[in-house]
């Protein structure tokens, strides 16, 4: 049986990791490579690394740095930020990313999803969808690190991305991001009928939030940043809590082999 995954999200800005609140007020968290090594040593299920300023700056992804990160990563690594072309994707996969996450390009160059799925397979194409609640309370998708209102509805964007070949959805609530007040369960539920896995993102503060994302929101994976960066809660603790709630999670293997 496939397992529900617990995924630390690493936000990469300039030379280090940061974490903000609602895509703003960035706090420095530390350098990237040591964080990847720590999470690896803690036997996490997967890592997501997003360059949060690449699209805004019009930069291509830094595949040379990604190569160093990927070599140190013994779990699947998803990389996003600034991806606009299939060449960007090819360079990141060559550098060792297992999956790539496309966000702004979903709105501005969506055919890159088709081409990436055709060349590299749907399993490595993640559609990253950032969502805010508008004044009327309805969900609307935003791009360019949350700075641009696309006017699109999350379900429409997700369906189109899946039709184009995306194999997974990373669904982030910008309003909840960094607040540690819980995921937007309504948002998750609105996408739960999709035929691909949905990764819940934005708002995790406690283990109970992770359980809710899976049991009430229908998520296949839960991503969290602040909770792991700034509290004493750990990915291993998160999995224990999910297991106690009856969610199938990967057992930690306390093997004899140490990892550097």
């Amino acid at each position: 049986m496939l397992k529900v995954r617990v995924i630390p999200t690493l936000l990469w800005k300039d030379v280090g990791l940061v974490k903000g609140v609602r895509f703003d007020s960035w706090r420095r968290v530390g350098p990237v490579l040591p964080a990847i090594k720590v999470y690896n040593s803690r036997d996490v299920d997967e890592l997501i690394l997003l360059d949060i300023t690449a699209s805004g700056d019009g930069r291509a992804p830094d595949h040379e740095s990604v190569s160093d990160f990927a070599d140190a990563c013994s779990v699947p690594l998803t990389v996003g930020g600034g991806i606009r072309t299939v060449e960007h994707i090819a360079a990141l996969l060559r550098a060792g990313a297992d999956k790539i996450a496309v966000n702004t390009a979903l709105y501005e160059a969506p055919e890159v999803v088709n081409e990436a799925a055709r060349q590299f397979g749907s399993q490595c194409v993640v559609a990253s969808i950032d969502v805010r609640r508008a004044g009327d309370g309805l969900h609307v998708c935003v791009s360019r690190s949350g700075s641009r209102d696309t006017g699109c509805q999350p379900l429409d964007v997700a369906r189109e991305a899946v039709e184009r070949g995306a194999g997974e959805i990373l669904l982030t609530s910008v309003d909840r991001d960094g607040t540690m007040t819980g995921y937007d369960i309504d948002l998750l539920r609105s996408l739960s009928a999709l035929p691909v896995p949905v990764i819940a993102s934005g708002g995790a503060g406690t283990y109970a939030d992770l359980v809710a994302a899976v049991c009430a929101g229908g998520a296949s994976a839960v991503a969290a940043a602040s909770m792991f960066h700034f509290t004493e809660q750990t990915p291993a603790g998160a999995k224990a809590a999910l297991r106690d709630a009856g969610v199938p999670v990967r057992h930690q293997f306390a093997g004899a082999v140490s990892q550097s």
Binding site: N40, S74, P76, F253, G255, V257, Q259
Partner: peptide, 10 residues
């Protein structure tokens, strides 16, 4: 195995 964390390493 190279993406399967400690168990893969073993």
């Amino acid at each position: 195995p190279e993406k399967s964390s400690r168990a893969g390493r073993q």
